[in-house]
Design a protein around this nucleic acid. Structure first.
Lengths: 322, 322
DNA sequence: GACTACATCCAAAGCGCTTCGGGCACTTCA
DNA sequence: TGAAGTGCCCGAAGCGCTTTGGATGTAGTC
């Protein structure tokens, strides 16, 4: 069954027939015990009572799945309180249950990376940390670049007052997006005011609340960057509710993870976006992990994907006099 | 380490100390091989290139995780093409990799149930099938009742023309919701016209398209039932775009799975909903599965949760003359 | 003092698989 | 004709754990 070269074709056929008839499946646990491998990718899912789930997680998982199914791999998902991720990762690997680990939700100086480097289990990071040596395998999108270009476009359109509706402030993608924004503004002699920045889970409600808050400011922003189309949803609602015209009174660019659930082109005013498919990232990471485990093709260890800046109707020149 | 009663307290302490010092973790594969169990719940994730991922899946998973983390259980997720779910389930169980299986996305006469009954592995179904004996463990919400009551409320408000924006037509929750709707209408001498029904994946875009289509009809509906707040999002947009007033010209009730990402109370016009927390369902199912595996408390094998009908501003009396 | 009764500890068996080194039968070559 | 080689098959070892039936030592009993 395992493709040894010295067995007779006829004998092999007999075995295979028997397998089919009896519906035999090798016991994975025994297989793993004997070989040390069993076709599984481990991941830690941050969750706990009261902690909001993240839509993006499911989409990413779908991508991992697309690829995994092709090689008969499965996932071992270890739920964990977000505070205990390092310990959970270590335990997951030590349990000998997984052939490789996938790491996400990177933070600044993320301790998981150093920990993983001490082990021999292959891993790939989705995203990148900050403040630790960049010598680990990762796949990230150019968050800094994406938001730099988005902010630059808005600045070129004459906008002077910016706001940023961002993801959680401890995650590195948020940090980089902010950095990219600030850099673009600086080049135009502008700054991002502290009261025009929101960091939170990426839900509709947080987007709405943030935008509402911005619009109550003495000098409200005319240009808004938004870390997710889900947050943009809320932001747009707040804009409408305030009687403002998106793309005229106020411009907005959102990052689009290409969630099938919610497409920026279908917004009442189609959104200008920085785009990068989360699902594609999942597929790619699964591919790399599996190639690594199986010793197939050597794929690049570090990848930084550019995002697309797609201009639609939600951006326009700054309103005069603002 | 495994709590045998005959070992000296002092000896045990020595062992435990050693464990701590060396960071020893039992190999799960070996553990499973020896005991036949290893603390894992299996689930099959329907996915494939080109198949849209489902937001609801992630939320449900979070619920499972909340509970699993308390007992140090993990999940084994086996991605599978939706067409091959039965085979994948069988294989997952046969692989001896999971202590229990969780089944979702139930269809009519779902073959997975009969298959699982022939095995000894515990399982719980999320939802219920139709057309097979109801003697298997499940947790479902009363979809028929939910949509019956929602439709009845709208009928009582004087609505005569109904539409239904539903999930995929092969899933039983969709079938039951439709049945509940039809039943309520029948009691008021009304029918649900075939061209006022939409079955599709529950995304914003499908909601929008469906609503657009309905509004182009000669006699457009004034009352709309919607299987998800995500679809309602699109539907509401179409309503706005047509210049109609939600809650006045047209009434809408959506089913709310309590997704943190998108709250019906935050819609521009807050949505009337039938509510049942998907995450809570996940927690409960994990609880039942784990109790079963560990032989803890005996929990009910079949549960049918009522939904809440929460009236907000998206429903109102039928416009006169319609 | 011999014997039973405990309290502990330990060693062997076995979970189901993979790997690997022999071993058997047969062929080829000098 | 014997040695060397080849094709194929199979049995034994071992992966790291749990379980269990002694074995060992000590205390209590008559």
């Amino acid at each position: 069954m395992n493709g040894y070269p010295e067995v007779n074709a006829e004998t092999r056929q007999r075995v295979l027939d028997a397998v089919r008839e009896t519906g035999y499946r090798p016991n994975r646990a025994a297989q793993r015990l004997a070989t040390g491998r069993a076709g599984s990718i481990g991941l830690v899912m941050p969750t706990a009572d009261g902690i909001e789930s993240d839509v993006h997680f499911g989409e990413f998982l779908a991508g991992l799945g697309d690829e995994a199914v092709k090689h008969d791999f499965h996932f071992v998902i270890n739920p964990s309180h977000p505070e205990e991720e390092v310990a959970t990762c270590r335990r997951l690997v030590a349990s000998g249950n997984v052939d490789a680990l996938f790491l996400a939700y990177m933070r600044e100086k993320d301790p998981r990376i150093a920990m993983m480097k001490t082990l021999k289990t292959p891993f790939v990071v989705h995203g990148r940390s900050i403040g630790v040596p960049t010598d680990y395998p990762f796949l990230d999108i150019d968050n800094t670049g994406a938001f730099y270009e988005a902010a630059r476009l808005l600045a070129q359109l004459g906008h002077r007052h910016f706001a940023l509706i961002n993801g959680p402030d401890n995650l590195t993608f948020s940090i980089r997006r902010r950095k990219g924004t600030v850099r673009a503004l600086a080049e135009h002699g502008l700054t991002l005011r502290e009261d025009c920045v929101q960091h939170s889970q990426m839900t509709d409600e947080h987007g709405f609340r943030a935008m509402e808050r911005f619009l109550r400011l003495e000098t409200p922003p005319t240009a808004v960057l938004c870390s997710s189309t889900v947050m943009a949803l809320g932001a747009v609602r707040a804009i409408n509710q305030a009687g403002l015209k998106l793309g005229a009174d106020i411009s907005l660019i959102a990052h689009d993870d290409v969630l099938p659930m919610l497409k920026p082109e279908n917004f009442m005013v189609p959104l200008t976006t920085t785009r990068s498919s989360l699902r594609a990232a999942g597929q790619r990471i699964a591919r790399r992990l599996i190639a690594d485990i199986l010793g197939l093709e050597a794929l690049p260890q570090q990848e930084l994907w550019k995002t697309d800046l797609i201009v639609r109707a939600s951006t326009g020149p700054a309103p005069v006099g603002k």
